[in-house]
Design a protein around this nucleic acid. Structure first.
Length: 508
RNA sequence: GGAGAGGUGGCAGAGUGGUUGAACGCGCUGGUCUCGAAAACCAGUAUACAGCUCGUCUGUAUCGGGGGUUCGAAUCCCCCCCUCUCCGCCA
């Protein structure tokens, strides 16, 4: 497995019509027409998100490209006209030559050659323009893939997570976050690292032995609790919210990563399986691509959103509400030295993820965002874990979202240390709810036909998409274990999880 | 991994060099008929991009993808991808 960022220019990013799932090649990305009309909006978007994309260069290349296209198409039209006109004549002449006397044949042959050579100049011009186009398009497409979706106007402008705005706090009656853990429960808390060690719930040494840093083994009730929270979350989404459960690939093609918007920006976060000896499509010797490399997904969102890539959905079938539980792989590049111990930041974990694909309607999109956040609140309240909602500022948004709300759970074993060298507790991110408009669906070429079933009726429109964590574990075991620990070192199992723990009510 | 078959419009399925963006059928939409529905009949029914005299306009591209041959390619040649069947292996 190659771990380095891979650069593969062969990905076909040109603007092409949709050809169905098996032959998917197109990434319309952001709406170039819209960008052409309102370049400032996209420039501002880049600035607010602190993402570099050369919009001016993009516009310049776009203009070059369109000028070339216009000129080239005019010549193609002329060539087609000539071919249509002279074709039958050529056939006739060729026939006549066979029957004619030698002198006549020579004359006819000259006529034939003249006819055949008529489009030669046009062909030469077209070939040249194709060359010029080939020089412009790769750069244009590369920039286009980097242009982020501008954040919504109501998203606070800021440079980092420090500028995020708290929207709401919730905690169960038995735990007041504004007071210390000891004031709440009458004893000093252990961190989850101490708890899993003392209760035998995880084995970090053996995990690291096998798989390196940030690896772990869940043992005994640790594994059982992990499964329990995932199952609890999954069942909540299926039984209470009516989401459709799916099992999706976690090993996917590059196209799925680009289409869902994780590439190119997040390429260094993904594990790359070098499966093929793929030759770049623009390799001069090359007869094209050979095989496909694969990538491990960092979230079930990739598989869920990739499902309908390249499809035109029936409007009546929207919204599509999907939930999956999948193993997620993240290289955590750039996070060296951060959260190096414990179950908080690890390379492999499991996550229940929800996505909604809906009509291209801002109000509907916004309404789903609120609902999807609400589902998570219901789960956290059901487990009685204190949490807060954070409105992420523009600088904390990724390229693909217009708006993002993080949900942070209270972790008594996190945060700065008190006088005794014990952590005071802190919120830690456990969920993230994104609203993407049609950014992702454009890249995935996922549309719906307005006006109902059947072909040939109504316009096609790119869908809107949203996603939100439902529950990620083992990270979620951090607040769970730390909040539910008892003075004697045992951990009470929350009532909601006991059915998934064989009726057991405590660990240790 | 070995062998074979095949990829054409929403579906099914013709087409092996020249008004073929593509027959026939199904589906879908509109209309006729009907109190209404069904049936029957008639008509229509892909996508994307570009252009302007922005029109139910013009042009270009698309028959798995890319490249080639040709005045002209769904059709011929090369490479790749994918699907299916049989055998082997396997959770």
């Amino acid at each position: 497995m190659a771990l380095g960022p891979c650069v593969r220019p062969s990905i076909r990013a040109s603007i092409r019509p949709c050809r169905g799932p098996t032959s998917y090649t197109g990434f319309p990305m952001i709406d170039l027409k819209h960008l052409r009309e309102q370049p400032q909006r996209y420039k501002d978007g880049c600035a607010k998100k602190r993402i570099n994309a050369d919009i001016d260069r993009l516009l310049q290349l776009d203009e070059q490209r369109r000028a070339l296209l216009t000129a080239m198409e005019a010549r193609r039209a002329e060539q087609n006209r000539i071919a249509k006109e002279s074709g039958p004549l050529i056939g006739k002449l060729a026939g006549a030559i066979k029957k004619a006397s030698p002198e006549e044949a020579a004359k006819l042959q000259a006529e034939l050659d003249e006819l055949k050579s008529r489009p030669a100049a046009l062909k030469a011009q077209i070939t040249e323009m194709e060359g010029q186009l080939a020089a412009v398009e790769p750069e244009l497409n590369a920039i286009l893939l980097q242009v982020p979706l501008p954040p919504d106007d109501d998203v606070p402008v800021g440079s980092s997570s420090d500028d995020n705005k708290e929207l709401k706090r919730w905690n169960p009656a038995w735990f007041d976050v504004s007071k210390s853990f000891e004031a709440n429960k009458g004893f000093k808390p252990k961190t989850h690292i101490e708890l899993v060690r003392d209760l035998g719930l995880a084995d970090f040494e053996r995990g690291v032995k096998m798989a390196g840093t940030r690896s772990y083994v869940l043992t005994g009730d640790g594994m059982r609790l992990h499964q329990a929270v995932l199952r609890y979350a999954m069942d909540h989404m299926i039984d209470r919210q009516g989401f459709k459960p799916m099992s999706v690939p976690v090993l996917v093609r590059e196209e799925a990563m680009v289409g869902t918007g994780f590439f190119p920006a997040g390429r260094e976060q993904a594990y790359h399986i070098a499966e093929s000896q793929r030759i770049a499509a623009d390799d001069p010797s090359g007869s094209g691509a050979k095989g496909y490399d694969l990538f491990l997904t960092g979230t079930g969102e990739v598989g869920l959103m990739g499902l309908h890539q390249g499809e035109i959905l029936d409007e009546a079938s929207l919204p599509r509400c999907y939930v999956t539980v999948s193993t997620c792989f993240r290289r955590e590049a750039g996070a060296a030295g951060k959260d190096t111990a414990g179950l908080y930041r690890i390379h492999q974990f499991d996550k229940v993820e929800q996505v909604v694909i809906c009509r291209a309607d801002e109000a509907e999109s916004r309404a789903w965002h609120q609902k999807m956040i609400g589902y998570v609140e219901a789960i956290l309240q059901g487990l009685e874990i204190p949490y807060r909602l954070l409105q992420c500022c523009t600088g904390d948004l990724g390229p693909k979202n217009a708006d993002m709300v993080d949900i942070e759970s209270w972790m008594p074993g996190r945060g700065e240390l008190d006088g005794d060298g014990r952590p005071r507790g802190a919120y830690g991110e456990t969920h993230s709810a994104s609203r993407l408009y049609d950014f992702q669906c454009r890249r995935l070429n996922m549309r719906y036909r307005a006006g109902g079933e059947g072909a040939g009726k109504g316009e096609t429109t790119f869908c809107h998409s949203l996603n939100n964590t439902v529950l990620a574990s083992p990270r979620f075991l951090v607040p769970l274990l730390e909040m539910y620990q008892n003075a004697d070192g045992s951990v009470t199992i929350p009532a909601a999880l006991r059915p998934y723990m064989g009726g057991k009510d405590r660990i240790g």
